[in-house]
Simulated assay, not measured.
Amino acid sequence: MVDKLSDPIGRLMGLRYKSHPWHGIYIGKNAPEKVTAFIEVVPTDTVKYEIDKDSGYLRIDRPQKYSNVVPALYGFIPQTFCGDEVGKYCMEKTGRENIKGDGDPIDICVLTEKDITHGDILVHARPIGGFRMIDGNEADDKIIAVLNNDVVYEGYKNVSDLPPIVIERLKHYFLTYKDMPGKDNDTEITHTYEVEEAYEVIQRSITDYQKRFDNLGKLLY
């Protein structure tokens, strides 16, 4: 699927129509070591934007509660799907049962020292780790990456290299950003994992995507 969606025909079609950020953007030839990320939300946003899966446009998901804002660029990795393989890997690593993927593309937060003022953009990112997050009985992994060639963060090769405060801020955001008045939050982060596990999660999500959207490739080609 990845190779099919990256050939010249697909790229020419992208000149005529806006590519769907989930299905029409190439993940990158060096994935999972380097990936393209579609950014939905940036630290200055006071509402949470989320991709509309049908149209591919950004929509308002919800206002951020209190002063809780994302501490990094936040979005997803195109041509990935959090499905059976990602859920299975989560069960292997946690010893839990009956965990399934959440049915979304894999989320990614991208660290950079630059002030990026709006989302709906593509960036090249290098994964260095992630959070094994479970929401109810669903795997909801968050890949942690650095902006490719970023002056400050380029030297970080593994999540364990980051200052602890960076990890704490990211954890706090992901554990609280779904808080809504009158609703219980059944979200937890069981592990902070390093770069090799991040690669495995991404690779499994690519496999899940190919299984889930195999017919999409057949329709395009």
Score class of each variant (00 low, 15 high):
residue 1 M to A: 10
residue 1 M to G: 11
residue 3 D to K: 13
residue 4 K to V: 08
residue 7 D to P: 07
residue 8 P to E: 02
residue 9 I to F: 09
residue 10 G to C: 13
residue 15 L to P: 10
residue 15 L to H: 14
residue 23 H to G: 07
residue 25 I to G: 11
residue 27 I to K: 05
residue 27 I to S: 03
residue 29 K to F: 06
residue 32 P to E: 03
residue 36 T to E: 10
residue 39 I to V: 14
residue 43 P to I: 07
residue 44 T to Q: 14
residue 48 K to I: 00
residue 49 Y to V: 08
residue 61 D to C: 06
residue 67 S to P: 00
residue 67 S to M: 05
residue 68 N to F: 03
residue 70 V to K: 02
residue 73 L to C: 12
residue 75 G to M: 01
residue 76 F to M: 11
residue 76 F to A: 05
residue 77 I to M: 00
residue 78 P to W: 01
residue 80 T to C: 10
residue 80 T to Y: 02
residue 83 G to D: 09
residue 85 E to T: 03
residue 87 G to Y: 01
residue 87 G to K: 04
residue 87 G to V: 01
residue 90 C to E: 00
residue 94 T to H: 10
residue 96 R to V: 01
residue 98 N to Y: 10
residue 99 I to E: 00
residue 101 G to Q: 03
residue 104 D to K: 11
residue 106 I to L: 14
residue 109 C to N: 06
residue 109 C to M: 11
residue 111 L to G: 08
residue 113 E to S: 07
residue 115 D to E: 10
residue 116 I to V: 14
residue 116 I to P: 14
residue 119 G to I: 08
residue 122 L to E: 12
residue 123 V to Q: 09
residue 126 R to M: 12
residue 127 P to Y: 02
residue 129 G to H: 05
residue 130 G to E: 04
residue 132 R to Y: 07
residue 138 E to V: 01
residue 140 D to R: 02
residue 140 D to Q: 11
residue 141 D to K: 10
residue 141 D to I: 10
residue 144 I to P: 01
residue 144 I to D: 01
residue 149 N to D: 15
residue 150 D to G: 01
residue 152 V to G: 05
residue 152 V to S: 08
residue 154 E to T: 05
residue 157 K to T: 05
residue 161 D to I: 02
residue 162 L to C: 06
residue 165 I to A: 08
residue 167 I to Y: 02
residue 168 E to F: 00
residue 169 R to F: 07
residue 172 H to A: 09
residue 173 Y to C: 08
residue 176 T to C: 09
residue 177 Y to W: 04
residue 183 K to E: 11
residue 185 N to M: 02
residue 186 D to Y: 12
residue 186 D to Q: 13
residue 187 T to K: 15
residue 189 I to D: 00
residue 190 T to R: 10
residue 192 T to Y: 09
residue 194 E to K: 11
residue 195 V to L: 09
residue 196 E to Q: 12
residue 196 E to N: 12
residue 197 E to D: 15
residue 197 E to Q: 10
residue 197 E to K: 09
residue 198 A to S: 15
residue 201 V to F: 09
residue 201 V to D: 02
residue 202 I to H: 11
residue 205 S to Q: 05
residue 208 D to V: 02
residue 211 K to W: 00
residue 211 K to Y: 02
residue 212 R to V: 00
residue 215 N to M: 13
residue 216 L to T: 10
